[in-house]
Amino acid sequence: MPTAVKKTGFYALVVFIVLFSVFPFYYAILTSLKSGTALFRINYIPVDFSLANYTNVLTNGVFPLNILNSVIVAVTVVVISLFLAVTAAYALSRINFRGRGLLLLTILAVSMFPQIAVLAGLFEMVRWMGLYNSLFSLIFAYMIFTLPFTVWVLTTFMRDLPVEIEEAAIVDGASPFVIVMKIFLPLMWPALVTTGLLAFIAAWNEFLFALTFVANNDTRTVPVAIALLSGASEQEIPWGTIMAASVIVTVPLIVLVLIFQRKIVSGLTAGGVKG
């Protein structure tokens, strides 16, 4: 095959990959900028630039509150799981004790739990604790997928750090807690940023628990709010508003992901986290 043909074929494939990946979101942005009957004209390039859908979703109803709820839940989940995971990862990676293999196995197994398997039990527990309809129920429940993952990735990261870095501190008689805080934490911020971001995305996107444990419009998180966005009548699905809401909650994620691209890829491959 002549090189020119090969090269063209290769670049055609590249163009296909880019279009395949980007087009649906591009089209969502396009739709979000249309108002009224413009929605029902199909365009491939932007022709309408109306912000009506954005003002609509941000001023009418409780959507801003839903965004705030999602931020509160996701940030709290990240902070708690990172705090619990750093110390646990230190113990799992730097201290040799009996039963460590079994513990790691358990943590790995929990990370593969289907959410539906704990849904019934968790629902009863949430009700019993009086957390039904409150954001605390979600903060609590989300630990099931953020904690095993953060522990696992941080353990992998810590174990790769050289022995020497803590030897001097051990000789000096520093306690394990001081060692974690003073020696490991400063070295670990890249890993913390990666795992924190992945945990944030997972919490931000979660749907099943959010649908089940919260039944109040004011306390809903963004994914459920978008899923339940409806128009004035049953038949009239407000596509423009839905797309505007979708763009609002997705753009920050995309920006974060593009900024931390390399770190995320390494974190994903180290932790094998689900998408």
């Binding site: 980007v22 649906p24 899923a227 995309i254 992901v257 691209q261 890829v265």
Partner: peptide
Amino acid sequence: AAVLIPWAIPTIVSAKMWAW
């Protein structure tokens, strides 16, 4: 970078985008 975009989009949002 482009390839990462679908991964970053919440499942609910992609479901709605494609439904449209």
